Amino acid sequence: MASLSALAAAIAVAAPHAGATVTSIRVDKGQSFGSSADARGTGCSYPVTVNTDPGKTVVLLDQIGDDPQSADYKQFQPYELVADASGAARTTWIPDRKGPHKIVVLELLEGDDFEVYGLRNAMNVGTGINLGPACVVLP
């Protein structure tokens, strides 16, 4: 997956083309609670759904703030997905670092070509205390 490093570096200059088929990224909060309204914590699990065309392959990356060099795929289980017949591709995100996170989706096209789609607003991640089905989030 060494090529993902090159793809992550390309995020800084790549922009989604008009024909991008990723229509949304949804990150469920699950049973997280804590010091902020949008509480998400390190080490806790969050369901992620990417909506795109059925059968499309996408790769997810976790980027800290606006730094494309921080983009990494290891926080997703699995990180490479194929959308089902309804166009939904599902995975689990387990953030491993505090700070503002942006989820970036690379939609794989022909050869080494890809489209980039990302959440507009960053999600803040604090220190998580994983309690099994719930997560306590500290600042």
Rank of each mutant, 00 (worst) to 15 (best):
D84Y: 00
Q75R: 13
N121L: 08
L61A: 10
F76E: 06
K56H: 11
V105G: 05
A89G: 12
G118W: 04
R97H: 10
V116E: 01
E110Q: 12
Y117S: 14
N130A: 12
Q69P: 09
V125P: 00
K56M: 08
E107P: 00
T91G: 05
P78E: 12
D62V: 14
G87Y: 02
N124W: 10
E80W: 05
W93I: 13
T127F: 09
G128S: 13
P54Y: 03
V116Q: 01
K98F: 04
K102Q: 12
P78A: 08
G99F: 13
G87S: 09
L106H: 05
A89H: 09
Y73I: 00
T91F: 01
Y117D: 11
D96A: 13
D72T: 04
I103A: 01
P68C: 06
N130W: 02
P95T: 14
G99R: 10
L60D: 02
P100V: 09
D53T: 15
E115D: 15
F114G: 00
A83G: 02
P68V: 07
Q69W: 03
G126H: 09
K102C: 07
W93P: 08
T52E: 11
V104Q: 08
T57G: 03
R90H: 05
W93C: 12
T57D: 10
Y73D: 15
R97C: 07
Q69T: 14
I129R: 03
G55S: 03
L106A: 15
T57L: 08
H101D: 04
D84L: 01
L108R: 15
I64F: 07
L60Y: 00
T57W: 09
L61N: 04
V116W: 00
K56E: 11
A83E: 02
P68H: 05
K98V: 15
P100Q: 15
D96H: 11
D96I: 09
Y117I: 11
L81W: 01
F76A: 07
L106Q: 10
P95G: 02
G111S: 13
D53K: 07
P54D: 08
Y79W: 14
Q63S: 07
N130I: 13
Y79G: 09
P100C: 07
D67W: 02
P100N: 15
V59F: 00
Q63L: 06
T92D: 06
R90Q: 14
S86F: 03
D112E: 10
D72Y: 00
T52N: 04
I94G: 00
I94W: 02
V82H: 01
D53A: 12
I129L: 04
D113P: 00
M123G: 00
S86C: 02
D113V: 04
K74C: 05
E110I: 06
P78S: 07
E80K: 14
V59M: 06
V59A: 07
Q63M: 14
L119D: 03
P95H: 03
S86L: 05
P78N: 10
D84E: 04
G111I: 14
N130C: 04
V58M: 08
H101L: 14
K56Q: 11
K56G: 02
G111M: 13
T52V: 12
Q77S: 11
